[in-house]
Design a protein around this nucleic acid. Sequence first.
DNA 1: AGAATAAATGAATATTTATTCACTATAAAC
DNA 2: GTTTATAGTGAATAAATATTCATTTATTCT
Lengths: 199, 199
Amino acid sequence: MFVWNFRIMPKLKDQNKVEAIHKATIELITKTGFSGLKMAEVAKKSGVATGTLYVYYKSKEELINDVYVNTKKEISRAIINPEYLKDTFYDTFKAMWYGYFGYCLKHPEKMMFVEQFIYSGFISEVNISVTESYFEALNQFLIDGQKQGVIKDVDMEILKAYLQGSIHEIVKMVVKGAIELQKNDMHTCFTMAWNSIRK
Amino acid sequence: MFVWNFRIMPKLKDQNKVEAIHKATIELITKTGFSGLKMAEVAKKSGVATGTLYVYYKSKEELINDVYVNTKKEISRAIINPEYLKDTFYDTFKAMWYGYFGYCLKHPEKMMFVEQFIYSGFISEVNISVTESYFEALNQFLIDGQKQGVIKDVDMEILKAYLQGSIHEIVKMVVKGAIELQKNDMHTCFTMAWNSIRK
DNA sequence: AGAATAAATGAATATTTATTCACTATAAAC
DNA sequence: GTTTATAGTGAATAAATATTCATTTATTCT
């Protein structure tokens, strides 16, 4: 008769589908907000059946949390990059600032998704600390700058909030169409940022 | 028999109720986002029956738009205030900056509500131009500063985005509990803002 | 006080949307 | 190529939520 057939390798979930689902989720949330996200729309936009979403995720909430952690990791890599390390604090800061500004311009929907999510009250405690750890190196870099006396001795969180807030708002205006960024404007923005934190 | 009884003054809608409804709407949207707003929750929080909401507003969308226009007007008054007019550009700017920062600290839920709404895609064209008109005087003030050569010749929208973005982000951090603002910090923040736009 | 009108109510209804589930298609092991 | 397990499907169901409406309450005017 028959011997039982135990599977070694599970049949793989389609990585393209995962990416399509993430992409659709981010784009839809940017438009309609966290609570406005509809699973049917995610399914349609990512080209899978609604039921498939539940093969990948237990619930809408789990889907969104997964997308969040993923995106935060991607963002940390846009700021913290070995290539950005230069000889002076100023030059490294400049590289990081442009790295993040460039990322936001390229992926405004991801920037806005993360921004919305943080204040939505749906983020789990676990994910807060997981994602904070991604930015340890940035904190260390800024603390060093303060120790060297290159930048202002402001509370670290205020410093980061200030830098991030100005970038986000400008990018949002660009997306909205209220601002057309010329090459020169970007340089001016960086100068504004640097002047605000330098000692 | 009976003579018909035509009413001169309509029975008044309760202004306290309007205010309670607005307040509840703002607070709930801050927590759960635009689409997360539930009419039943608005009713409960503002102490009226669900049906009453439809006496005052045709739909949820109309309610939110009304709250938005109202809040924008209030915000414009927090920035543009005859008392703030001083002898120098610097002093007037300082008064305005503190006026807005103070308003945001006092009413973070209103600040966040407006921020969320702008990008929600539910704002009507009419309301965009109505609310923009509230800020004409601010634009004029900043243009004057540029003409006088006191502040950088940056695109006006970039300038405003930069100033607003940094304030918003810091206030959001304060609300989140990630920052504890000391008296001194506020002054430092102002200095950062001024250093970023001064010539 | 009594008639007319409009505000206010909240249970009932209509609509929207998350989730399930019976079924089909496909990949892994033999 | 046959078997088995799991991915994938989408119509059906369950749950959540906006809106309506018959009724009650309060206000204005004579």
